[in-house]
């Protein structure tokens, strides 16, 4: 039967000849597991790095952003479902070798290559080859990921990933099982492993009304962050927009996002942001010591910047991140 077991992510799909993984991007062809998306991105854009979101990593720079079809999670609210929940045959792909990705990123004056929109885990081989070439050319690699990956490939990813925004979608196994058809534990392990390995980590939590929007949810999530990766890890609360299978829900009210931010700050997290609401106070970076606004933003746009040599321009307190 030439059956194989994919060991890339915790799903560990067992595939008979001709079967495709749950991610739709990997297939057993004659007893060999093959990737169907290598060199075939379906999305290529130059975005501000703030869009990922990274707020403490080379602010104000462009990020050459790529994605392929497929995903190993199936979130009911996926904002990019048109590519993440499709087979690569059903997206419009272009041919772009790792060498071409790096060349185009350099030509566009980008400092980073972002692996985003879907999830770099499912185009691991492509991301790994681009990542190595990027380093040779002094570009940095930024993953935007759900962190649903097995320890062995994660160990390899850490050798070429410089920054990761990890989507911590909820803080209960039930949320992951119901909404994302996945499990929580491997995601938490990925966050801890990446942080320990020195990868720059920021965490995003999309607040979905009625699913993960209680004060208890926010408290548990923040407690876990403080206890396991520390209060210096930036945390982004994002506004949900009705999409895909959750069109019946309303967008996250601003008051809920503001409350989540208040709770996170009360728990001691230093850098807490509110996303998808331009002009909100939570778009800005405040110094945790002197409390002054050191990076003023509206959405992805930087309006004011007062960090000097990695320190608060007002009081000199070191601000974690990569600033130059």
């Amino acid at each position: 039967m030439k059956k194989v077991k994919c060991l890339l992510c915790p799903r560990e799909c067992e595939l008979r000849d001709g079967d495709r993984g749950d991610c739709r991007a990997r297939m057993n062809i004659g007893g060999k597991l093959q990737t169907l998306v290598y060199g075939k991105p379906c999305a290529v854009h130059i975005d501000p790095i703030e869009k990922k979101p990274f707020f403490h990593y080379l602010p104000g720079t462009g990020s050459f952003s790529i994605a392929t079809a497929g995903c190993n999670l199936h979130c009911m609210y996926c904002q990019n479902w048109a590519i993440s929940q499709r087979e690569p045959e059903n997206t419009r792909n272009i041919d772009l070798s790792p060498q071409q990705v790096v060349e185009q990123a350099m030509a566009a004056n980008c400092r980073t290559i972002a692996y985003t929109y879907s999830d770099p885990v499912i185009f691991f081989e492509y991301a790994a080859d681009i990542g190595a070439l990027a380093h040779e050319n002094k570009l940095l690699n930024a993953w935007v990921t759900a962190g649903y990956i097995n320890p062995e490939p994660l160990k390899e990813a850490i050798t070429f990933v410089d920054a990761a925004n990890i989507d911590l979608k909820g803080i209960t196994e039930e949320f992951y099982r119901t909404v994302s058809k996945a499990t929580l534990k491997p995601v938490l392990d990925t966050i801890v492993t990446m942080k320990k390995a020195g990868v720059w980590v920021e965490i995003t939590n999309l607040i979905v009304p009625t699913y993960n929007d209680t004060e208890e949810d926010f408290s548990r999530l923040c407690d876990w962050i403080v206890d396991n990766v520390g209060a210096e890890v930036p945390l982004h609360f994002s506004k949900f927009w009705p999409m895909y299978q959750l069109k019946n829900l309303p967008p996250t009210p601003e008051t809920v996002l503001t409350r989540a931010r208040e709770i996170a700050m009360a728990k001691g997290i230093h850098y807490v942001y509110v996303g998808n609401i331009p002009g909100h106070e939570g778009n800005n970076t405040y110094c945790p010591v002197c409390k002054k606004n050191i990076i003023s933003r509206s959405g992805y746009q930087i309006l004011g910047y007062n960090i000097k040599a990695g320190k608060c321009g007002f009081c000199g307190h070191p601000i974690p991140g990569r600033w130059e």
């Binding site: 194989v4 060199g39 691991f124 097995n150 490939p153």
Partner: peptide
């Protein structure tokens, strides 16, 4: 036009049977 790739993946094992 077939717009998918065919490249050997890593991180898998063959199963018996």
């Amino acid at each position: 036009k077939d717009n998918t790739a065919r490249k050997d993946a890593r991180y898998y094992k063959n199963l018996a049977g």
